[in-house]
Design a protein around this nucleic acid. Structure first.
Length: 614
RNA sequence: GGUCUCGUAGCUCAACUGGAUAGAGCAGCUGCCUUCUAAGCAGCAGGUUUCAGGUUCGAGUCCUGACGGGAUCACCA
């Protein structure tokens, strides 16, 4: 039982005994006392004032006295407006610290919640390298997965790899036409970038062809027929490109043929596809490695895009879905406040929805999970609403525990990232950049000169990645965020390195004092505010973790770690440790070691590693 | 236009299920390194929480309506 629960119980008990008023302990609001007020914890009295027809003062007095009489945890109280502020005794603080110190690694952790959760994230297309948007996705997914593990879920990290379709064929086509059999190795390029280059090359080929076509009589005719009034040629052809690709382009024609061939299982096409996707996967793997994330099982669209049809046919006969005259199959979600959604085209081929239903089922057959989290951008909010309702409708066993971790787009200070305008921030470049920045910074500080090269590089990476990851993960997922490259490599203030630095400072002290941890602190009476603040922070960790897990919100952990680090830095300046009295020293060493552990654990939940020095 | 979502300091972000005088960081200005790592600390300045109503002991938070940004409304994914 933690202090807050203790207070809740005592207050409930008192209300029941003194006023014959029954309240669930958990309904009693207990806060950390606001700054500028005397006390450590605060009971909010307003909710009971009316019901008991007592003045806040009288009510507070009754409760305050009862608490002090009953329990040595409380030493004094004061009442301001409807707030009962309680002061906690030194004995109680020491007990709390002893407990915290003893638990350290397991504070707030749940061993086995008996829940198996599958977390899907990253899920890239295989025609270009990962970019900043993927980084936000990956960090959210990874962190979410770590948090769920921490509260006792068995977690499986997965993706749905979008490895087929017209976009993938575009890269293949361009390579076929212009690649001359070149491989990434020969080109000295990372495989995903190599393939991405051909995706870009394809667009250039298409543009050239399009330009030429625009001068043809065909094109003139199209312009005359389809232009909107007063629309200039230039303007018209800008918007017509997609239709050109579908109806006139020979390159487009060829590419679509390739897609058909792929679907028919044409040997040569499949070979090329396998080879090029292989290059991409090698590249992705490297990026994931540099970001320190990993997956347990991948699902490939090429394997799953045909799944789901059977389920849909089956549910059709059960009457859950319905068939239009043209043969297409739909689900009616109007009762759920949504729309009608198509599940199978009239020609019997599948759509996105078909595949997702099939993949979900496949995953259930593979893993028997009871819940799933999809980390996907908020442009797909509607799709996931529809998917979840559909899965509920057909009574899939996991369907009441589905969550779309929907996150906002990442903007640059200059506006949206646009691949056409080349403003997309590449993931690998970004990682390299933040590490370089950390290196420069560290060299200026000159703290690591006595360490050997490989370890030093390891530390630079931890710091650089710490800065980048923290910058992104601190923002609440659902909020659209601005990514300023300058701010992302900042190492001062509310940043990853600031938190790492708190940890490093603690480690540095502990290295000099390991044996003193066992000393006795029982006679330590004069607990300082800075110490209390840290204890209060530490005691909050379990509820922060719970909340983060419940809301699928890593930013809650990020903000908590910062405030813990901040309170530590202040403590560090205000309080001496090495040359304190024996009992104070013992108390403080246990305190900071616990702080270090919680900092390390919190950051680990965000996918950020702690350096031992910096 | 319908639906969803966001709007907090010059900038980037906080604020637990509604709780006290809305907090941090960056940028700007002032101080603090013979003392446990200055990637740090302390201080100054910066706000009508987009606006208007409502609910109540109490609203940045909930409701209604404006205004502004974004997303989405395909037999695309």
């Amino acid at each position: 039982m933690n202090i807050i629960q203790l207070i809740q119980n005592q207050v409930a008990d008192c209300l029941s005994k003194q006023f014959d008023h029954t309240v669930a302990a958990s309904d009693i609001l207990v806060n950390v006392t606001a700054k500028n007020f005397e006390g450590d914890y605060t009971v909010v009295l307003f909710p009971f004032v009316k019901a008991l027809r007592q003045s806040p003062q009288a009510l507070g007095d009754t409760i305050g006295k009862a608490l002090i009489d009953n329990d040595e945890t409380f030493v004094s109280y004061n009442i301001i407006k409807g707030f009962l502020n309680l002061e906690i005794s030194a004995i109680a603080w020491r007990k709390e610290l002893a407990k915290l110190f003893q638990q350290k690694e397991s504070i707030g952790r749940i061993e086995n919640a008996g829940v198996k959760t599958l977390v899907e994230f990253s899920s890239p297309n295989t025609n270009k390298p990962l970019h900043l948007g993927h980084i936000r996705n990956i960090l959210l997914g990874w962190s979410c997965s770590q948090i769920l593990k921490e509260v006792g879920h068995e977690v499986i990290n997965t993706q749905i790899v979008n490895d087929r379709g017209i976009a993938v064929c575009k890269s293949m086509m361009a390579w076929k036409k212009t690649g001359n059999g070149l491989t990434p190795k020969e080109a000295g390029k990372k495989g995903d970038h190599f393939v991405g280059d051909y995706y870009v090359a394809y667009d250039q080929l298409l543009n050239k062809e399009y330009q030429t076509w625009q001068t043809s009589t065909d094109a003139q005719e199209v312009y005359q027929v389809h232009k909107k009034e007063e629309q200039s040629k230039e303007d018209f052809f800008k918007t017509y490109k997609n239709r050109y690709f579908n109806s006139y382009s020979t390159l487009g024609e060829e590419t679509k043929e390739m897609l058909l061939k792929w679907e028919e299982g044409d040997q040569e096409t499949k070979e090329l596809w396998k080879t090029m996707n292989g290059w991409v996967y090698e590249g992705f793997e490297e990026t994931y490695k540099s970001l320190k994330v990993s997956f347990d099982q991948l699902y490939y669209e090429s394997d799953t895009y045909l799944l789901g049809k059977d389920i849909i046919e089956q549910q059709l006969t059960k009457g859950k879905f319905y068939k239009e005259e043209d043969g297409s199959i739909w689900v009616d979600l109007t009762e759920q406040g949504l729309d009608k959604k198509i599940l199978l085209r009239s020609d019997g081929t599948s759509v996105y929805m078909t595949q997702d239903i099939g993949t979900a089922k496949q995953r259930y057959d593979d893993h028997g999970m009871n819940s799933m989290v999809y980390v996907v951008g908020n442009e797909q909010d509607y799709h996931f609403k529809a998917l979840f309702e559909t899965l509920k409708l057909i009574e899939e066993p996991y369907s009441d525990a589905l969550f779309h971790l929907s996150y906002g787009m990442v903007d640059l200070p200059t506006g949206k990232m646009k691949s056409r305008e080349g403003t997309v921030v590449d993931a690998d470049d970004l990682v390299a950049e933040v590490i370089a920045e950390a290196r420069t910074s560290a060299q200026e500080n000159g703290n690591l000169e006595d360490i050997e090269e490989t370890e030093r590089e390891d530390i630079y990476a931890k710091i650089g990645l710490g800065a980048l990851k923290y910058f992104i993960i601190k923002v609440h997922p659902k909020k659209r965020m601005t990514f300023d490259p300058k701010q992302s490599v900042d190492m001062q203030g509310q940043t990853g390195p600031y938190i790492q630095n708190a940890y490093v400072r603690i480690k540095s002290i502990l290295r000099k004092n390991e044996d003193a941890l066992k000393a006795n602190m029982d006679s330590y009476e004069s607990i300082e505010d800075a110490e209390k603040t840290l204890l209060i922070d530490l005691l909050q960790f379990p509820s922060v973790l719970q909340e983060a897990a419940k809301q699928y919100d890593p930013s809650a952990i990020a903000n908590y770690s910062f405030s813990l680090a901040k309170d530590f830095h202040r403590f560090y300046h205000e309080v001496r440790i090495l040359n304190a009295s024996d009992e104070a020293k013992a108390f403080r060493l246990q305190l900071i070691e616990t702080v270090a552990t919680i900092l390390e654990r919190s950051m680990r939940l965000l996918g950020i590693e702690m350096p031992s020095r910096m």
